[in-house]
Amino acid sequence: MTPEKIALVQDSFAKVAPIAPQAGAAFYDRLFEIAPEVRPMFKDDLTDQAAKLMTTLGVVVKGLTDLPKIIPVAEQLARRHVSYGVTEDQYGPVGAALIDTLSAGLGDDFTPEVKAAWEDAYATLSGVMIAAAYHEETVA
């Protein structure tokens, strides 16, 4: 990711952070709308899950300036998600729900450039996570 794209992601996330609880809830509402098959993976009360999502997203966004430092954390998170039943094809709807949530939350501030930066960030990290969880050889 370019420094410019990283700045766009970080600046736009700073605008979402004050409404983190609402953004987290909106994300899951959108995810379950476009991928209802994932709903059984979650508890009925998503308050804690939404808070964890926004906290994790904040850490990742902050860490974009030092990708080598956050990649091992993302890989570990991805491997853990496999045990929850997450499949490789579910990363697509998660990305779509994220983009839709950011678009709704940022309104006019979600410019085409901001959208492209977020799509790049998600593609980068989801690619790392998918590779770690589903494509790495296990060393015995």
Results as ranks from 00 to 15, higher is better:
Leu8Glu: 04
Pro36Trp: 08
Phe110Val: 04
Leu53Gly: 05
Phe13Cys: 06
Pro18Cys: 10
Val16His: 03
Thr56Asn: 07
Ala132Val: 12
Thr101Phe: 00
Glu136Tyr: 09
Asp109Pro: 02
Gln22Leu: 09
Val61Asp: 01
Ala133Pro: 11
Asp45Pro: 02
Ala74Cys: 15
Ala131Leu: 11
Val61Gly: 00
Glu119Asn: 10
Thr138Met: 14
Glu37His: 11
Ser103Asp: 12
Lys5Gln: 15
Ile99Leu: 13
Asp120Lys: 08
Asp44Val: 06
Met129Thr: 04
Asp66Gly: 04
Ala14Ile: 09
Ile70Leu: 12
Ile70Cys: 08
Ala51Cys: 03
Val9Lys: 00
Leu106Gln: 03
Lys43Cys: 00
Pro68Gly: 09
Phe110Lys: 02
Ala17Gln: 15
Val60Asn: 02
Thr47Phe: 02
Ile99Ala: 11
Trp118Asp: 02
Gly58Phe: 07
Ala78Trp: 08
Thr87Gly: 05
Ala17Cys: 03
Gly92Thr: 12
Tyr84Glu: 07
Ala51Pro: 02
Leu102Met: 13
Ala96Asn: 04
Ala78Gln: 07
Thr111Glu: 07
Trp118Ala: 02
Gly92Tyr: 06
Ser126Val: 11
Leu53Lys: 02
Ala117Leu: 01
Phe27Ile: 05
Leu77Tyr: 08
Phe27Met: 05
His135Arg: 15
Val38Met: 13
Ala51Phe: 03
Gly24Tyr: 07
Ala74Phe: 03
Thr87Tyr: 04
Gly107Asp: 05
Val60Thr: 09
Gly127Cys: 07
Thr56Met: 10
Asp100Leu: 13
Asp108Gly: 03
Trp118Ser: 02
Asp11Gly: 12
Leu77His: 09
Ala20Tyr: 07
Glu136Ile: 05
Leu98Asp: 04
Val16Phe: 07
Lys115Glu: 14
Arg79Val: 13
Ile130Tyr: 02
